[in-house]
Amino acid sequence: MTEIKHHLNDQLLIGYATGSLPEAFGLVVATHISLCDECRARFEAFEAVGGSVLEHATEGTNLSEVDFGATLKRIAAGDQEKLAAKPAKPGVFPSALQEYVGGDLSAVKWRPVGMGVRQAILKTRDNASVRLLHIPAGKAVPDHGHAGMELTLVLQGAFRDDHDRFGRGDIEIACEDLEHTPVAEDGMDCICLSATDAPLKFNGFLPRLAQRFLRI
């Protein structure tokens, strides 16, 4: 495991443990947890709280029995094969991300968004959105104007902003008022997974620098 310095906050971990996080954010959280045992331990501790809630779930209600016989029939009718644990797939991307991409890094269908930067939007079923970004080494991450919260997870290479360095596994939690210009480090192209809770405005999107240059 690489040394990870930037972690998920409690709010995101509880949201993921309770199942109330939008799918797009869930993907970033699941991918980070796959790379970070520190956050996995915190996440599983929050799941333990869920266990205590389940233990007392019948409080204030009539204890309602569930049909045992019907459940046994369900087991007998089901696939007799045990559900095997899925081993983690090797690669740059953890398994959860590979399922959304349909493979590892080489399977990503990139589209250019200007200034050498490429992106691939991943399909989710809710309003929040998630995409992969490919930023050439040494280039600035284009300003993509997001409303609401943005979660960015580095999967390859690294980027720096005024304060910090973010390498593989590091997560940046940005609110809409955060003004910063992250730059991909020299040496290796930077691949990030990024989720926002506002609809994307990507068509006709041009990086700020180009906008300035073209005076549009």
């Binding site: 199942g19 796959s34 081993p87 989710t124």
Partner: peptide, 20 residues
């Protein structure tokens, strides 16, 4: 139970971390 709820009630997919 939580995963079943997301599946059935919210009809969403839940991305899961690598299993250990």
């Amino acid at each position: 139970a939580r995963n079943r709820r997301i599946d059935v009630l919210r009809k969403e997919r839940r991305p899961e971390p690598d299993e250990l």
